[in-house]
């Protein structure tokens, strides 16, 4: 059964069609790399999947919101609250059982247990990014929607995120990530959707040839990396 289905989706901004008749389905456990150059419609599609934006035409079907997680271009944490309070808040919103324990566990996972009671505004950029990862994974989501997740992450946060994504895949989570970092994306991905000017230029499995030569995907199906 399809975990995600995108059916004839169109999205207009004024007269401009940012997405044009986008169609695809993916099964549970798939890791989908959503690729395309700037302005291809990756973020628009992810925002529709996350429920942040509606479609102009067409429909999307997703699992229960309680089992999904979204990481956008920004970190989505509250600067005035402490690291522990941030995770407890999102634990409550996602109805995590035993929220105190879960928050403490995830602070350990993201190496922030020593600053649990400090307000997030006092954190360095890397610490804030790790707190955001704790926020995303605290409810152990079955569906991850990640918009350019590696952009502006430091090395430690990239390693942490890659580890968490691998773990999520091992427990059967579905991942949709949009990125410009082809090599990292194609290493993780099982499927690829390449968008070009709002339309699907390629939709199918990730092949070994793509992983070996990521730029070939763009050469063969149009667009620029």
């Amino acid at each position: 059964m399809a975990a995600v289905s995108v059916e004839n989706v169109w999205k207009y901004f004024g007269d401009y069609p940012a997405l044009r008749d986008v169609n695809f389905t993916i099964d549970a456990g798939t890791c989908l790399a959503l690729l395309g150059r700037n302005g291809a419609g990756k973020t628009t599609l992810l925002r529709i999947l996350a429920g942040l934006s509606g479609t102009s035409k067409g429909a999307v079907k997703l699992p229960d919101r309680r089992r999904t997680a979204y990481l956008g271009h920004n970190i989505g944490i509250y600067d005035e609250l402490s690291a522990l309070e941030n995770l407890k808040l999102f634990g409550r919103l996602y109805e995590v059982p035993n929220v105190k324990q879960a928050a403490a566990k995830w602070l350990e996972r993201v190496n922030l247990a020593h600053v649990a009671d400090s307000p997030a505004r006092e954190f360095s950029r890397g610490m804030r990014q790790r707190l955001a990862l704790g926020r995303v994974f605290i409810h152990e989501p079955e569906m991850l929607l990640l918009d350019e997740p590696f952009t502006s992450l430091d090395d430690q946060a990239i390693a942490l995120l890659q580890g968490l994504m691998r773990e999520a895949r091992m427990r059967g989570a579905t991942i949709i990530l949009s990125t410009h970092q082809l090599r990292e994306a194609l290493e993780l991905a099982t499927n690829v959707v390449l968008l070009r000017r709002g339309q699907i230029a390629y939709c199918g499995p990730r092949t070994k040839a793509m992983a070996d030569d990521p730029a070939a995907l763009y050469r063969d199906h149009g667009g620029e990396p």
Binding site: A50, G51, L52, D64, R65, R66, T68, Y70, G72, H73, N74, I75, G76, I77, Y78, D79, F90, L93, Y94, E95, R135, L145
Partner: peptide, 14 residues
């Protein structure tokens, strides 16, 4: 608005 928290709330099950 800071850190796009509104997006995170809208995307949450609330």
């Amino acid at each position: 608005l800071p850190n796009d928290c509104l997006d995170v709330l809208i995307a949450s099950p609330v």
